[in-house]
Simulated scan of single mutants.
Amino acid sequence: MLKTGKKLLKYRRFSEEFKKKIVHEYEYGQLSVSSLSETYSISFQCIYRWIHQYSSYNKAGIQVVEMKDSQESKLKAQQKRIAELEQSLGQKQLYLEYLEKMIELANEEYAIDIKKNSNTPPSGGFRTTKKS
């Protein structure tokens, strides 16, 4: 009981808009019933009741079968691909930093400017450079 004297409800109430939104997400394959249940902390039974109530093609008495190749599996595959690409990008970044350091060391050790400015003329051939 609250200080104002009102009792706390033991269950939640959802607006009709919210229920239709959940059904829409399910019908268009954005999320499965299990992922909707986890995402919004709503029971399976409640979601199935809403599907039977608000869906245009899933009515009570008809068994709802979810396809394995749903949006959820595609989403998981895309997330896995993103993780792989991020890892690859990280490795390339480390390699790039390694090469930058090697260029810097070559410049210090051998006085060779490997990174030439774009406005410098091309080299004259096999002339040797003097150490400074």
Results as ranks from 00 to 15, higher is better:
M1T: 07
G5L: 06
K6V: 05
K6M: 09
K7F: 08
L9Q: 05
Y11G: 07
R12V: 04
R13E: 10
E16D: 11
E16F: 02
E16C: 09
K19T: 01
K19R: 12
K20S: 04
I22F: 02
V23G: 00
H24G: 04
Y28E: 12
S34K: 08
E38G: 13
Y40S: 13
S41Q: 13
S41K: 13
I42M: 08
S43D: 15
S43E: 12
S43N: 13
W50D: 05
Y54Q: 09
S55C: 12
S55I: 07
Y57D: 12
N58T: 05
N58Q: 13
K59S: 15
K59P: 11
K59N: 14
A60C: 11
V64A: 07
V64M: 11
K76D: 10
E84L: 01
E84A: 00
E86V: 03
E86A: 04
Q91M: 03
K92W: 01
K92V: 01
Q93I: 05
L94E: 14
Y95F: 10
L96F: 11
E100K: 08
K101G: 05
M102P: 02
I103V: 15
A106R: 04
N107S: 14
E108R: 09
E108P: 03
Y110C: 05
Y110V: 00
D113P: 02
D113V: 00
I114S: 05
K115E: 15
N117L: 09
N119V: 08
N119Y: 09
T120L: 05
T120S: 13
P122G: 01
S123Q: 03
G124L: 06
G124T: 05
G125S: 03
R127I: 08
T128V: 13
T129Q: 07
K130S: 13
S132N: 06
